[in-house]
């Protein structure tokens, strides 16, 4: 089982409309909802925003990684969004983000899925991965950006 198991091509968008954090989360949540991985759109948005209230997931370096753990979620998935103009994300470094991952995890998620998510999170700490993601324009390139680190 590889990273493509949770990072699905149908859950990627390369031209996000949102300019604010809440809108960005809603935009990616909509994608997850449209493909039937979650039973309640608003529920997923609320869970992710509640998590943001603890402290922001705008980890700096142009990356936002909002996430939600909720019984509404049927299967652990990640939606990926790229923004050309940048999104105000309340980041640690105060800069806008250009890459957003929305992670949705069911209440008792499969351990393998969680392990993939941890690999993904770890990979984001590396500059070469972030650089490749910023250049990616197809789902294959997004997955490719992680592959080097994940395997």
């Amino acid at each position: 089982m590889g990273i493509s198991e949770v990072l699905r091509p149908e859950l990627m968008t390369f031209d996000m409309k949102a300019e604010k954090k809440a809108d960005a989360i809603r935009e990616l949540a909509q994608l997850i909802y449209d493909h039937g991985y979650v039973s309640d759109l608003q529920g997923l948005v609320d869970a992710a925003m509640a998590r943001e209230a603890d402290y922001s997931t705008g980890i700096g370096m142009g990356v936002g990684i909002p996430h939600a753990k909720s019984p509404l979620v049927k299967e652990a998935v990640v939606a990926f969004g790229r923004s050309k103009k940048g999104i105000e994300f309340d980041s640690f470094d105060g800069e806008p983000v250009y890459i957003v991952f929305l992670i949705a995890v069911p209440e008792n998620a499969d351990k393998e899925h969680l392990n993939i998510l941890s690999t993904l999170s770890r990979a984001l700490m590396h500059e070469e991965v972030r650089g490749a993601l910023l250049k990616a324009s197809t789902p294959e390139e997004v997955i490719q950006a992680f592959q080097s680190k994940a395997d």
Partner: peptide
């Protein structure tokens, strides 16, 4: 939540 930040 122990999903992302822990590992980052």
């Amino acid at each position: 939540t122990g999903i992302a930040h822990t590992y980052m």
